[in-house]
Amino acid sequence: MLKDTLGNRDKNRTALRDLAHNPYRRSTNLFCQGCADFNRCGGIAAKEGAGYCYNHCCGGKPDCETVCRQNPNFDAQIREIGGFDFGNIPHSAPLRAPALRGAAPLILHGKRRTGLLIAPIVAIKLRDLVNLRTGTLKYADRSALASAFKIRADSHLVITGIEQEHFVEPWWSLGRKARAPLLKEIAAMGIALVTPPNFSLFNDVPRTSNFSALKRIGMVQAEFNVAGIPCSLHPHIRNETDSARWVAYVAERPEIKSIAYEFSTGAGRYPVKDMHIEHLTRLAQQSGRPLDLVIRGDQRILPILRGVYRNVLYIDTNAFMKTMHRQSAIRSGNAGLDWVSQRTPEGAHLDDLLQHNVDEVTFATRHHLARAA
């Protein structure tokens, strides 16, 4: 059963894969040619009848929250982000950040362990650092955070905001005024790098909603940088025109030193996976300077992009979760990992199992990176 962007079941909805941009097999809808946003959009080549984005418009219902020209609140939506163009996003001075490469295990909590995880780089979620309802930090300082997650205080700490939409929007909803003092507090914790919230580009909405998400991606990344926190840009796209906009944006912003991308959901699926890889390649080759890359999702993409980026960091979401489910990593082939169940006594601590799994994922990641295309 298909679902819409709100998770509602709807047997009559077009499959999301049929809404994806696929210029190799589809043509741009004829209605796109006369659209006021065509130059900024470039058109979506999708299944017949599905590419014209206003086919997915509700017609401007009063309670609609989608950024859309039919929405009665469209003017207010545009004022909130200062228009769709990227030119008015604040600049910042380039920041110094450590060279991060290899694997960073995503750690969700410190339960079921007594000792500290030994890992040079560790990732935690933005929502595990910040109470998104109150806009306050959950930990008084870096030492308290390290103690709670049972990680070494000297590990490089990566904060990742890549999440499902219902965990991403609350960061924006805090508002710029509330985020400003919060960012100063985060800066004082000595964060190595942030990958900011990845506002989604849904397929089944008018493209103006996508343009709003793109602008917010740029604005939020700039906010972290202005606050003195090294932050990756998450330049998500739906088509080649989106890619061209990001390529031009990155080229003129020397403060952007790192790109973050997620290949575990939309970008990692057929038929758009190759388009996203090409997009990231163009960003690296046309930026005019070396860029770093942070990836979540499909490890097989690592060797493809390692050759065009200076440093590549893989945020691993498997080692911790597999440990909590009492599964152990077993090497398979040159760089593969199988996961096998492992019985543990009731109430047993999982320090050794987590360390083993993190070490094995780190080994596999290094192997993938060494096979740069």
Rank of each mutant, 00 (worst) to 15 (best):
D75T: 13
N12T: 15
G49I: 12
T160F: 00
K215P: 02
R216E: 01
L19F: 07
R207G: 06
S232G: 07
D352H: 11
P181K: 08
L280I: 11
D63F: 14
E262Q: 04
D154L: 06
V220D: 03
P94S: 09
A36D: 11
R179N: 07
N8F: 15
R9F: 14
W172V: 03
H279E: 09
N334R: 12
F363G: 02
I330C: 05
A319P: 08
L302F: 06
E80V: 03
I259H: 05
R133G: 06
Q33M: 09
I118T: 13
V122S: 05
A36I: 04
S232Y: 01
T265F: 13
V272S: 04
F211N: 04
V361L: 09
I159C: 02
R179G: 03
R306E: 11
I301A: 02
K184V: 03
P23W: 10
R113L: 15
E255H: 06
G102L: 07
R9C: 09
M275L: 15
A335I: 00
D141L: 09
G110M: 02
D359C: 09
N318C: 10
S232I: 05
L95I: 05
L183N: 04
L291T: 07
C58G: 06
D316F: 07
A148H: 10
G7T: 08
A260S: 14
Q221I: 00
A103V: 06
F149T: 04
N39W: 04
F263G: 02
Y309V: 03
S143D: 14
A104Q: 01
D75K: 13
R306K: 15
Q299R: 15
D63H: 15
T5Q: 14
H56D: 07
Q33E: 15
L137S: 08
K125N: 09
R326H: 14
I78G: 00
R142E: 06
E360K: 15
A99C: 10
F38Y: 15
Q70T: 11
F84C: 08
D37E: 12
Y270C: 03
G268N: 09
I162V: 10
A153Y: 01
P254Y: 06
R207A: 04
Y249S: 08
L116Y: 12
R331V: 12
D298W: 00
E169G: 00
C35V: 11
E165T: 09
N55Q: 11
A335M: 05
L214E: 08
I304T: 11
L350W: 02
L193F: 05
L2F: 13
R69F: 08
L353D: 10
L305C: 04
C57K: 05
G87H: 06
N73G: 08
C32K: 05
A370G: 15
T265M: 11
H325E: 15
I237T: 14
R282A: 12
R79W: 02
N203L: 14
T28K: 12
H234L: 12
H368M: 09
E252R: 15
N131H: 06
H234F: 12
A335K: 13
D128C: 02
A20D: 01
G7K: 07
A192R: 01
A227Q: 06
